Amino acid sequence: MWSLSQILVAVSAAFITPAAGPADDGQWPVGGYRFSDEMGGFRIVEAHGEGTRRDPVVLTQEFYSASPVVLVIRGYGPDAGPRTIPGSPGTALYLTLRTRNASGLGWIEFQFELQEEPGQPSTYGDGLSFDQRRFEPRGMGSDSFELHDRNFEPHDRLLFREGKVDPDETASFSILITDLTPVSPFYLVQDPRIPLS
């Protein structure tokens, strides 16, 4: 026979969703995706969220150099991929990246680039973009950089500027990735910029 306190603990535990941990293959399953740091240069340390506007996927990560790194994003399961965009056949992923600068060098800009094929620019025809059709006007931002610029052709790039991230500090970036013709996997290149000497 269970006591009332044991029942309350069991019920509470059923409603608590801990942050995701890496699967056996090193991928972090969260929000209908698997996020992976398999290409190296950085490490995902925590992941949680559903990928929606109200509950974005939040990845906490550490960068060990000021060189570009690649986040691999795969769909999985029956609900593979992001949530649908109302009135569109496409999908949307609200993503917040909490990025710790463990490189030992200060960053003065930070650029993101989307790719469907690693090393190949994402073009208008592939449907993958940083909300190119502007479904969500407030989908992009950072707590460390004042401004951001979008460059959709010939690449899908998002550059955060007018700020800095010193060594051992953490910057937060909120981005919205839309895909009118979803594929899995796709790639997010993350490129911290250092001052030129």
Rank of each mutant, 00 (worst) to 15 (best):
I44W: 00
G81E: 06
W28C: 03
F186N: 01
P86W: 10
R98G: 00
F145E: 01
F112G: 00
F145M: 02
L4P: 01
R150Q: 07
D37L: 02
Y76L: 08
R161G: 01
G49F: 08
R54A: 15
R74P: 00
V183E: 11
A10N: 12
Q132Y: 10
E38W: 00
V57I: 03
G32W: 05
S103V: 01
I44F: 01
P56D: 10
G139Q: 10
L196H: 05
G41V: 04
Y33K: 06
I7T: 12
T170L: 06
M39S: 14
S3E: 11
G106T: 07
G90S: 03
A10F: 11
G26V: 08
P18V: 07
L147G: 06
G81F: 03
Y64Q: 07
F42Y: 11
R138K: 12
L4V: 12
P56N: 12
L196V: 08
L97S: 06
G106W: 00
P22A: 15
R43W: 03
P182V: 08
Y187G: 04
V57F: 03
D166Q: 14
P167D: 05
V183K: 12
G106F: 03
L180M: 13
D24T: 10
G32N: 10
L114N: 04
A13M: 09
R133M: 12
Q132A: 13
G106K: 09
R100N: 04
F35S: 02
Q115H: 05
G90Y: 04
P167F: 06
P185D: 04
R157V: 06
G77Y: 07
L159R: 11
P195K: 07
E46G: 15
T170A: 06
R193H: 08
I108H: 04
T181D: 15
H48G: 07
E117W: 07
A19V: 07
P195G: 05
L147D: 14
I175S: 03
R74F: 01
G163Y: 05
G32E: 09
T123R: 14
G75F: 00
D156T: 10
Q115T: 03
S174L: 13
R100I: 02
V70K: 04
I177W: 06
L180N: 08
